[in-house]
Design a protein around this nucleic acid. Structure first.
Length: 255
DNA sequence: ATGGCATTATGCTAATGA
């Protein structure tokens, strides 16, 4: 089976891309981010017709996350319990014996901005939540847009990005701390380094054509799942289409 | 250092993203 994640940057605009991409995916659980759409508008019917169940935590204009699966999604949890946050960034569900979380971590705007501190606080809350989820669910997968490039080589220009938003020390430490607290490891690190590792490219300055990308979308796995990783890939085809999302889908296959 | 491009909305300018 396969675990995947895709920040769509508007489900309304990207629904045709999503349906085309889903048609090529076999047994999968897919996390989506940046739906920018309220749950009442979510295209449940189009997805059901395509063979996918969906659970959503939507929001108008900003944020919004979902989980898709070909099999029933149960025990659905929206948001981080006990954290009063109006931004819809988390949804969790269970498919068979697999617990999956779809997350859209705050962007942070710029280092030391108000949004940056919100991001760091948010990651602390998320870490505590993941630690609890990991205790409850030995087979835990956390997929999404983490808005953190973990390593210098996860950017096209490590010197230029060093210390900037998505790459600052506190952000990287917060992500690593969350992973350690929950016993999660990056599926990317379980496979030989692929030729293409970036998952996001700036719309501006022909970022995709020049491959000026970042690796900020991740599939994190608890130990029992980590051992089952067979491959990690980023699908570039949707990024080449007209009016693409600025993110490409990432998929990890498990034995 | 800035903007570059895209999406959305108490819309034609401003906020946000990464």
């Amino acid at each position: 089976m396969q675990l995947a994640t895709w920040n769509l940057n508007s489900l309304r605009v990207r629904l045709p891309h999503l349906l085309d991409w889903l048609a090529e995916q076999s047994d999968s659980v897919v996390g989506l981010q940046e739906l920018k759409m309220a749950d009442e508008e979510f295209p449940f019917e189009a997805l059901r017709d395509a063979g996918w169940q969906a659970v959503t935590n939507g929001q108008k204009t900003y944020n919004g996350v979902a989980l898709l699966a070909r099999r029933p999604l149960e025990d659905v949890q929206r948001d981080i319990p006990g954290f009063d946050d109006p931004q819809k960034r988390v949804i969790a569900g269970t498919v068979d014996d697999l617990r999956v979380v779809s997350v859209y971590v705050p962007n942070g705007q710029s280092v030391d901005s108000q949004k940056y501190h919100y991001k760091l606080d948010w990651l602390q809350r998320f870490a505590a939540y993941l630690a609890e989820e990991a205790e409850r669910h030995p087979r835990l997968a956390v997929v999404g847009d983490f808005n953190v490039a973990p390593l210098p080589e996860d950017t096209h220009d490590p010197e230029a990005w060093e210390g900037h938003i998505l790459c600052s020390g506190p952000e990287r430490e917060a992500l690593r701390g969350a992973m350690e607290a929950a016993g999660l490891s990056d599926a990317f690190e379980r496979v030989p380094t692929p030729e293409q590792r970036y998952t996001w490219w700036d719309y501006r300055a022909a970022g995709f054509r020049r491959n000026l990308g970042l690796r900020i979308d991740h599939v994190l796995l608890s130990a029992p799942l980590s051992e089952r990783v067979e491959s990690w890939r980023v699908d570039l085809e949707p990024r080449r289409l007209e009016r693409p999302s600025d993110h490409a889908p990432v998929a990890v296959t498990l034995a």
